[in-house]
C-alpha cells in the first residue's frame, strides 16, 4: 500500500495544458486582426495616427516622467503585509495540530505587526493627500 503523496502533480498537468490553450486563444486574438487588416486594407497607418494620445496637440514632455513616490511606498507596504499573509496560510490550515503554543506565537507575531502598522499609520505613510 503506497502512501498518497502530499502533492498530486498529475493534477497540475491540466493547468499547464490550459496555459497553452489560453495563450493560443489570446495570441490568436492579437495576431488574427492584424492579418485581417492587411487583407481587407483597413490598415492605413500615418504619422498622426501613430502619434501618442494627447488632447489634440503634440505631447509636451516625455511620458516617462517622474511620478509620485507614494506609489513606491504602497508597494513596500504591500510586500510587508502580503508576506505576512503568506506566513499565515500554513498556520491557518494546521491550526488544529499546533495547539495553544502555535496559536499564541502567531498572535504575538500579529501584535508585532500591529505595532508596525500603527507606527506607519502615525507617521502618515497611509495618508494620501
Amino acid at each position: 500500500m503506497r502512501e498518497k503523496p502530499l502533492v498530486d502533480l498529475s493534477q497540475y498537468l491540466p493547468i499547464l495544458l490550459f496555459l497553452g490553450v489560453a495563450l493560443a486563444i489570446s495570441g490568436a486574438f492579437v495576431v488574427l486582426p492584424m492579418i485581417v487588416n492587411r487583407l481587407t486594407g483597413t490598415a492605413k497607418p500615418n504619422p498622426d495616427k501613430l502619434a501618442e494620445y494627447e488632447c489634440g496637440f503634440p505631447a509636451f514632455e516625455d511620458s516617462r516622467a517622474q511620478f509620485d513616490v507614494r506609489f513606491y511606498l504602497v508597494a513596500i507596504l504591500f510586500i510587508v503585509f502580503d508576506l505576512e499573509a503568506a506566513f499565515l496560510y500554513p498556520w491557518a490550515v494546521s491550526l488544529g495540530g499546533i495547539g495553544l503554543t502555535g496559536w499564541a506565537s502567531m498572535m504575538l507575531f500579529l501584535v508585532e505587526l500591529g505595532i508596525g502598522f500603527a507606527y506607519a499609520w502615525k507617521k502618515g505613510a497611509l495618508d494620501w493627500e
Binding site: 490550459f18 489560453a22 492584424m34 487588416n37 483597413t42 494620445y53
Partner: peptide, 29 residues
C-alpha cells in the same frame, strides 16, 4: 475584429502586444 490595429510609433511594440495577451490568458487560467 475588422478594425485597424494601431501600434503607436513611440510604443515598445513587443511589450505593447504582450500585455493584453497576459491579461486575457491570466483571466482564463
Amino acid at each position: 475584429f475588422l478594425q485597424e490595429v494601431i501600434i503607436p510609433s513611440a510604443a515598445n511594440k513587443g511589450l505593447f502586444l504582450i500585455a493584453p495577451i497576459i491579461t486575457f490568458t491570466v483571466a482564463q487560467l
